[in-house]
Design a protein around this nucleic acid. Structure first.
Lengths: 252, 252
DNA sequence: ACCTGAACACCGTTCAAGT
DNA sequence: ACCTGAACACCGTTCAAGT
């Protein structure tokens, strides 16, 4: 739960004075604010209101404080959002590497998806923000590199394979849980259904035939996102294809 | 270039009255605004300023018009952004299917990347907005389904394979071109470099050893995005792995 | 039909000030 | 060190009005 602030190398160490050096605050009571409280409250707001409706002012209100109070702990909104995603991803790396590198990769990708499922509104932030906490990231990076080397891949291919793996881990899930505009959900769903059922079987034979399996159960042809309708089959197929392809390229 | 408005089924037909039915505007001169002009100007702004700095008010200024004038053509900012991404993706589907389904898939994924490379600031919008123009999408969907059937996959696997394919197409590239916070770019780069070179070889042996190949050339360990530093090798490895995995699952 | 113009309810952030 | 309070320069969008 806790991110052990202070023991971790905080990326982007933002020149804002980090609060507790040593036994500070000899005064009466603890400060009302802290990095941890702010991050927890921010995550709470993002989880419940979505990232668009998350504002420094609302966060301040939730914390019972004036907006600018937050800025003593965090340099700006972007940095705060980065810390929230780092917090969410803190427990990503599996503890125990197994005997089978393919199982390890599978586990990592599924763990990532499970985390985002618990905090879907964070999904759109992952792309830009998977850079926030270097210590966590270095562990994860090393973990992935080790798995890839055990796969038997050519050593020279490991950097490319690493990037491919991270892309596979984050890409699908980010899309799956991407926010769906909630302006007029039902109108949108209705139009999508209508287009789907009026898909000309002459022009689009396969799409028309498979529509019952695709409608609101696959990318593009949906109006709910992964929170409401998880794309389990698609994700599994994606993961297994990627791993199988890696295995083939590694000579298995 | 032109999206032929009126000939396409516009998804989310938003009840705003769509302008030209028949020979309208018998009056003096053409209206100063049009859907096409607005979309083109919006794309221009997004390309140059980024999506964060893109506002209805700036767009109005660029068009030489009051902000609310735009609202006669577009119901709101989100819808406008959706149309922009649809416009950008209009030419995604390749014209000529080849003899080899693997080549076709490769072509599609590379075309997608080329489009996003030309408009990288649109990348973060793709996830939520690959839903905007149903006619384009149906063509693309049918195209993908046809390719997958030619692969020899089990018919029952095609829906999952379809979602996996779209996820593969959009996921990696969306991450590759995700915006990098430009608050203090150089400071960020410096810290990243420092963490990289001080990576403990005891704790992170592979990461430390491969760091020269990884630093700013792979996910997470970078400060530039795909516009400045394209991840060509990673992308190729990803695409080839996915296709190889598909082939294996199809029994090749 | 197409656009203006003012107004409302918000933003993130700077800056000076309190304690 | 930690937070208040006012102010600045923005937002998207509603609503009434002009032509």
């Amino acid at each position: 739960m806790s991110t052990h602030p202070g023991t971790e190398i905080t990326m982007h160490a933002d020149d804002a004075p980090q609060p507790p050096k040593r036994k500070r605050r000899p005064s009466k009571d603890a400060p009302s604010l802290s990095s941890d409280r702010i991050i927890a409250a921010a995550l709470d707001l993002i989880d419940t209101q979505g990232v668009d409706n998350f504002s420094m002012r609302n966060l301040a209100k939730l914390l019972g404080v004036y907006p600018m109070a937050i800025y003593w702990y965090v340099p700006n909104r972007n940095a705060l959002v980065a810390r929230v995603t780092a917090h969410v991803l803190a427990d990503l790396v599996p503890e125990d590497p197994s005997a089978d590198w393919q199982d390890d990769l599978r586990t990592l990708l599924h763990r990532f998806r499970a985390i985002i499922r618990a905090h879907p509104n964070v999904a759109p932030l992952i792309g830009a923000q998977l850079v926030s906490n270097a210590s966590v990231d270095l562990m994860m990076i090393e973990w992935v590199l080790q798995v890839l080397r055990r796969s038997g891949l050519n050593e020279a291919d490991i950097p490319a394979a690493y990037t491919a793996t991270i892309g596979a881990m984050t890409g699908f899930v980010t899309q799956e849980f991407a926010a769906v505009p909630q302006d007029d959900k039902t109108g949108w769903a209705d139009e999508m259904k209508q287009i789907a059922q009026s898909a000309d079987p002459e022009q689009f034979p396969l799409a028309a035939a498979l529509m019952p399996k695709l409608l609101n159960r696959s990318f593009i042809l949906r109006w709910d996102n992964g929170s409401a309708v998880p794309l389990d089959d698609g994700f599994d197929f994606f993961v297994e294809s990627f791993i199988a392809g890696l295995a083939r390229r590694a000579g298995h």
